[in-house]
């Protein structure tokens, strides 16, 4: 299918409701909170573990976390549906303009939010300005005793202390698939790129794909009446849609 991507230059060109390129849909009715996505993300992206004390102090490095809240008291107690929170890859990302050194920038080609590890100087402004609180900071050189380094994914930079990081929509997989598609002279097929979280999800609650392709599974799900963007009122134009209700 032939697609023409108009890359808007700035806010005025990109109206609310318009679709970006890559997008994700998470069905909260299906998510069982099993944490497979969390573990898969950590394994794919060389995320460090931080140990008990730092984890308890709010320094975990999860790029994706599953939120849930309690409503009411026993016996009328209800748990809100599990909600995996990851970088929403905002169209108008609040994290981007505030970085003084352009470490947080928008990819015009992929329409996602990039974090340039090598450029980051660690002001942590982006993390403050992220309404979703999905950016994590390397507060230390987290220990990774040998031979654990054998597991590190060579497609993903291993970050060190003083650097902000966040979900990348597994851009290494996107790039790989694009290279393959290009070498075979075709467009990327729907479902060809699967980020680690969606790949692992046993309930198949996470769907990933091209939003600019109206035929794709993710586009159709994103247009479902159950769809809701997180903190939509802020006008950040998230690329992740949550499906609420049953």
């Amino acid at each position: 299918m032939e697609k023409t991507l108009t890359i808007p230059e700035y806010k005025a060109d990109w109206a609310e409701g318009e679709n970006g390129k890559w997008g994700m849909v998470i069905d909260m009715d299906l998510c069982t909170g099993c944490q497979a996505c969390v573990a898969a993300c950590a394994m794919e992206n060389n995320i460090s573990f931080v140990g008990e004390e730092d984890a308890g102090y709010g320094r975990t490095m999860h790029w994706i976390r599953i939120e849930r809240f309690w409503e009411g008291t026993y016996p009328e107690i209800r748990m809100t549906p599990y909600q995996p929170i990851l970088c929403q890859q905002c169209g108008h990302a609040p994290c981007e303009p505030v970085c003084p050194v352009f470490a947080s920038v928008h990819s015009q080609a992929e329409q996602i939010n990039l974090q340039v590890y090598n450029r980051c100087v660690g002001t942590r402004y982006c993390a403050n300005n992220c309404p979703y609180q999905v950016r994590v900071f390397n507060w230390r050189d987290w220990p990774r005793p040998a031979p654990l380094e054998n597991q590190l994914n060579p497609s993903v930079t291993v970050r060190r202390r003083g650097i902000m990081e966040k979900c990348t929509f597994c851009i290494q997989r996107i790039r790989q698939a694009e290279d393959v598609a290009k070498s075979e002279g075709r467009e990327i097929r729907d479902g060809e790129v699967v980020p680690a979280c969606a790949q692992a999800c046993p309930a198949d609650a996470i769907v990933f794909g091209r939003l600019d392709d109206p035929e794709s599974r993710v586009s159709q799900l994103a247009n479902s009446p159950r769809g809701k963007k997180l903190l939509e009122e802020l006008g950040t134009l998230p690329q992740v849609t949550y499906l609420l209700g049953g």
């Binding site: 700035y10 806010k11 005025a12 990109w14 303009p97 505030v98 970085c99 352009f102 920038v105 928008h106």
Partner: peptide, 11 residues
């Protein structure tokens, strides 16, 4: 040119 936050290139 580096684009950030949906803002114009020259804000």
């Amino acid at each position: 040119p580096v684009y950030v936050g949906g803002q114009p290139l020259i804000p």
